[in-house]
């Protein structure tokens, strides 16, 4: 990085910490680009972070996550808290393009300087969440937003889940999600801190609430947080005050229990892991797609003179990797 771009990063950092929205938006773009400047920015702002409460909203498509996030924004604004929202959407693996439509349902932000909404394409982050998400959320935190809401369908790469990105996780279902509670993606019930039944005016809500209460009982630890089930109708705001109160109760719980520290440690370590994995992945991809590597190995494979396991083993050995499972 040149001295000039180092100076630019310093300048951008100053403006972001002063709450300049144009600078925050450009900073997020820098992080999304994956360039060294984005990394430099993340590093520069790190010490100023840690003030915002990070809230994850997760659940299958169509349950009303965006509408719920919008309702939460409104509720927090009446409490005089500022809110940033990071809406993560998948990218087409074929074209690399993405339609980011969450803004349509987020109208609370339109003319309110206390709200910042960013749509993010989960680029290069298999399935959704990754380093970019963590670092973008931190930038929003550093910009002074009291609450940062991360809205996403699911999990991501390298074990990055909503649980390694946010402090309080709300899992959203609807009476007609189509999923039995039993059929929910393994682990998500344990990761979530709050279960939300949205569109609770629909038939079947009572059954869903009952099922989730049972699931909560199963997931609760003897001395830990008791997972509540909250019914909402985000479209008209019913139940949303209750959800905010529940999120705030969980925030208070984390601040008073050792679990808060443990989970912060988990999030930080997940970020370190993602950083290391990213570097390793880039190096491996470069090695594996190098013509020299491929030209040497593919003819032998095609002629039956070598098998994929032998080739992989010798490529690893050439780079000084010893097998993790010796045979």
């Amino acid at each position: 990085m040149t001295a000039e771009s180092r100076h630019d990063i310093d300048d951008l950092t100053d403006r972001i910490t002063l709450g300049d929205r144009v600078a925050l938006a450009r900073g997020i773009s820098l992080i999304e680009s994956g360039d060294s400047e984005g990394l430099a920015l993340s590093e520069k702002v790190f010490a100023a972070g840690g003030r915002a409460h990070l809230i994850g909203i997760t659940g299958p498509p169509g349950v009303g996550k965006s509408t719920l996030a919008d309702a939460l924004v409104r509720a927090y604004r009446t409490r005089d808290l500022t809110v940033a929202v990071l809406a993560v959407d998948p990218v087409s693996p074929r074209t690399g393009g993405a339609t980011l439509g969450d803004r349509i349902r987020m109208t609370a932000a339109s003319a309110d300087r206390g709200v910042f909404i960013r749509s993010s394409a989960a680029r290069g982050q298999h399935g959704g969440l990754g380093l970019t998400t963590m670092q973008t959320a931190r930038l929003m935190d550093v910009a002074g937003y009291d609450r940062v809401i991360i809205e996403t369908v699911g999990t991501g790469q390298d074990g990055v889940t909503i649980g390694t990105v946010a402090a309080t996780i709300a899992l959203v279902q609807t009476p007609n999600s189509g999923d039995d509670v039993q059929a929910l993606k393994a682990g998500i019930l344990e990761i979530a801190d709050i279960y939300v039944v949205n569109k609770a005016e629909l038939p079947g809500a009572d059954t869903m609430i009952e099922d989730l209460r049972e699931a909560a009982e199963a997931a609760n630890l003897p001395d830990g947080w008791r997972r509540p089930v909250v019914a909402t109708t985000a479209a008209d705001g019913s139940g949303v005050e209750g959800l905010v109160a529940t999120i705030e109760a969980h925030r208070a719980y984390l601040r008073s229990s050792p679990e808060g520290e443990q989970r912060l440690a988990g999030r930080l370590w997940a970020e370190v892991q993602a950083l290391v994995h990213n570097e390793v992945r880039v190096a491996v991809d470069r090695y594996m797609t190098a013509p020299a590597t491929m030209h040497a190995a593919i003819p032998a494979l095609m002629a039956g003179r070598a098998n994929p396991i032998q080739v992989a083993r010798s490529l690893l050995a050439a780079r000084g990797w010893t097998p993790t499972r010796p045979n």
Partner: peptide, 20 residues
């Protein structure tokens, strides 16, 4: 591509362009 939905005021569009 970010789509805003209908009935946007100029102020809303400017705000969305900034944030995005």
């Amino acid at each position: 591509v970010i789509y805003t939905g209908l009935h946007q005021t100029p102020e809303m569009v400017v705000e969305a362009a900034i944030q995005e």
